[in-house]
Write a protein that binds this DNA or RNA. Structure first.
Lengths: 219, 219
DNA sequence: TGGTGTGAAACACTTCACAGCA
DNA sequence: TGCTGTGAAGTGTTTCACACCA
């Protein structure tokens, strides 16, 4: 999915949920007010970055004081569309899919998994959290009936593209893809990707460099 | 962890594992040679980007031909330090941790989970893949004995910081954090973060905008 | 006083466009 | 001919630094 000119930069959009997450912890702790400095330290981001990011959306702070936690959190939630609950489907019920289906953190943050699907008939009927596993063949019906726009894909890499095709054909516009493959979609569909191995590999890069460094310093 | 000046940009380092992944699929398919154009189409990246990225590390292609798949893959693996197998520990054996422990995709890509830990005594002794769950109290010993430099954290948010502190105190320099919280570490430690909910929220942002857009266009 | 909001400057990253080569 | 490797140009992102305000 591409960004139209004059739109908010995607980097900013990706940071907003982190701000929201941190603000909700602050709210739970009973903190009323927070400065960009304090929030930045929690999140590992500069104060200027936070102020600049927020300035795309309005003026939420008070000079000399900072930001009211509840007020800013409410605004960010609304900006992200989280004043509504988003129904999503999950496809793929291997160990990872089961963990996702059982995780409470989706529902508490505005994401409601309303259906879980697998093509393995031995899994159909399995109860996972509030959901019962349904066959993939029921996907189109459910997607359309509930007007689903978001989906989580946790199938093996070889199946990911076909599953994504079905999702997109039935109106899904945002996909969280756990399969270690880049899926092809029309450019009005958003895809975010989770590949823990790739993330680890990006760290092994630096750790190997460090070795060499030390070796060099020893001479 | 910060980047020293003149170093390879971190964005580039993060793309290398994606290139490696795609190249290994090509190799499995028996493809011998690939152009930056073809590889880019698979990955959703421009050809120029790939050529530029690779040029940080050397010259791996042949004019008029493209890249030899095996040769380039070998080089990228070496650049990422993947000519060695990296032993890692996993802390946290809830449903997610269990899925991680059982996932075969780590070992096949150079990441070997050599220990899994939890502080819940009812889980100690549980067999997960090739590992048996050990108590957190054994962490320091194992980290030091095996010279572990990478860890995966899959504990609840409230426990993440204390776990990370123990890891760092015992020599861990790279952490893959599944807990929905930004952990504090010394700046010689790398942290990568996985928060599926935050990724979904960054998509609900765009999907909400689209609604408004349509509403606007209807007038 | 202590903090925000924001243009402008600095920096980082991507894309272009083409020389050069098999 | 068809593709790489790469300076230079273009674009995007972050940081600076300060006017402004409760």
């Amino acid at each position: 999915m591409d960004i139209s000119p004059n739109a908010i930069p995607d980097v900013v959009v990706r940071r907003l949920p982190i701000y929201a997450r941190s603000l909700s912890y602050l709210a739970e702790e009973g903190v009323r007010s927070v400065s960009s400095q304090e929030l930045g330290e929690r999140i590992g981001v500069t104060a200027a970055q936070i102020r600049k990011d927020l300035s795309y959306f309005g003026e939420f702070g008070k000079q000399g004081i900072g930001y009211n936690v509840e007020y800013l959190l409410g605004h960010i939630r609304r900006i992200l569309g989280l004043h509504e609950v988003w129904p999503v489907v999950l496809v793929g019920v291997g160990p990872l899919g089961q963990a996702i289906a059982r995780y409470e953190g989706f529902r508490t943050r505005g994401i409601d998994i309303i259906g879980v699907f697998d093509n393995d008939s031995s899994k159909i009927g399995l109860q996972l959290g509030r959901n019962t596993v349904q066959p993939d063949s029921d996907l189109p019906k459910i997607l359309q009936e509930h007007n689903i726009r978001l989906a989580i894909v946790a199938v093996p890499a070889v199946r990911a593209q076909e599953v994504v095709d079905v999702l997109v054909q039935n109106g899904v516009q945002g996909i969280l893809n756990y399969a270690p493959i880049v899926v092809q979609t029309p450019d009005n569909v958003w895809v975010r990707h989770i590949d823990p191995v790739a993330l680890l590999h990006s760290m092994t890069y630096y750790l190997s460099r460090e070795d060499e460094h030390h070796a060099m310093n020893e001479h």
